[in-house]
């Protein structure tokens, strides 16, 4: 059966291998260059004791390569569409299921071996792309501390592997249900995107209860801000009468103060006037004024050391979803008329 799976899918494997090889070359070449650039920049700034603001002065990334790296977010979806979608659907659509499923091998075994190898390939390809991106990003991660942010979190570590396994399982299940290749592909794109957005926008921040900190404006905020590549879940201003809505209100100007959005129009007028005075002395009086009027900031964030726990939880969720979809596929293929 393994021979049959290879014969049926080897062209797809060749194409995917070629794409992966090209991507690996790009990552290796630009990654090595970037790493050495970062090392020499570190050496230079250490000599001049200016490493604390290296992040604002050094730009490591080539925008075209960065764009390619960002685009790897669609790799799992592509695998789902082109490997998963046609797997069962094309057999049903062309009628070859009546050939394959009438050979001397049970339908369950046919499905188990075909799905098994395809899922394994999806994990390998998703994992390989992610490993390359993770390695390539390591100087950028240590420089910009952005790897817990959704745009980076979704393309590094183990989660892309989980996404790939899920996408392929979704394609297979959709194909088994609708038995048409193109609709199965379309369903895969739509459902995959919705589930990914749902998890990253609504569920991820609650995997572990965020750490909450109250920022008193009397102190200099930087002293108690979290360190490293933390992920800020929410931040806002709390006044004497509860939370102050953030963002520009009534068309008024807004600003951020140590990462906390400050809705200027909602502030007491005494502090507002301080803010718009240009002299440095009165500007530094602004935080003290806020504190005196009973204002403080509340930060809610996921600390940097939770990064791998979050990667593990999210990968686990998608592998579990994939397992459910494969179980559904097995039931559908066994129960329904071929």
């Amino acid at each position: 059966m393994t021979w049959v799976v290879w014969r049926q899918h080897r062209n797809q494997a060749y194409i995917a291998a070629a794409a992966l090889a090209a991507f690996a070359v790009l990552m290796l070449v630009t990654g090595l260059q970037m790493a050495s650039e970062y090392r020499s920049a570190l050496g230079l700034c250490a000599a001049s004791h200016s490493c604390s603001n290296l992040a604002s002065t050094l730009n490591l990334e080539n925008s075209a390569v960065s764009a390619v790296v960002t685009l790897t977010v669609v790799v799992p979806c592509l695998l789902g569409v082109f490997w998963g979608g046609p797997l069962v659907a094309r057999e049903c659509e062309t009628g070859t299921s009546q050939f394959a499923w009438m050979q001397g091998i049970s339908r369950t075994r046919w499905l188990a071996v075909t799905v098994g190898w395809t899922m394994l390939a999806a994990a390998a390809w998703g994992g390989a792309v992610s490993a390359l991106v993770t390695w390539w990003s390591s100087p950028v991660n240590s420089l910009n501390l952005q790897n817990f942010q959704p745009s980076q979190f979704d393309i590094q570590g183990t989660v892309p592997m989980g996404y790939a396994v899920f996408a392929v399982a979704l394609g297979i299940a959709a194909g088994a249900l609708v038995r048409r290749t193109l609709p199965a592909m379309a369903i895969t794109v739509v459902v995959f995107t919705l589930v990914r957005l749902l998890v990253s926008e609504d569920f991820r921040s609650h995997f572990i209860t965020p750490v909450t900190k109250t920022l008193n404006f009397l102190l200099h905020a930087r002293a108690i801000l979290p360190t490293g590549s933390y992920w800020m879940v929410s931040s806002g201003l709390v006044g004497p009468s509860g939370p102050v809505r953030s963002g520009p209100l009534n068309g008024g100007p807004s600003l951020t103060f140590d990462g906390v959005p400050i809705p200027v129009s909602e502030l007491p007028s005494a502090c507002r006037t301080l803010l718009f005075q240009t002299s440095t002395k009165s500007a530094s009086g602004f935080p003290s004024c806020l504190a005196a009027h009973g204002y403080h900031a509340v930060l809610s964030y996921q600390p940097a050391d939770r990064y791998w726990a979050f990667q593990g939880i999210e990968t686990g969720i998608f592998i579990l979803l994939a397992a459910i979809l494969i179980a559904v596929t097995a039931i559908v293929v066994r129960r329904r008329d071929a």
Binding site: T94, G95, T96, W101, M102, S106, T108, R109, R334
Partner: peptide, 17 residues
């Protein structure tokens, strides 16, 4: 769908898949 049953059956569908 057992292999024992399938081994004894030769089936050729109309559309020659």
């Amino acid at each position: 769908q057992d292999s024992a049953f399938l081994a004894d059956i030769g089936f050729l569908a109309q559309e020659i898949p």
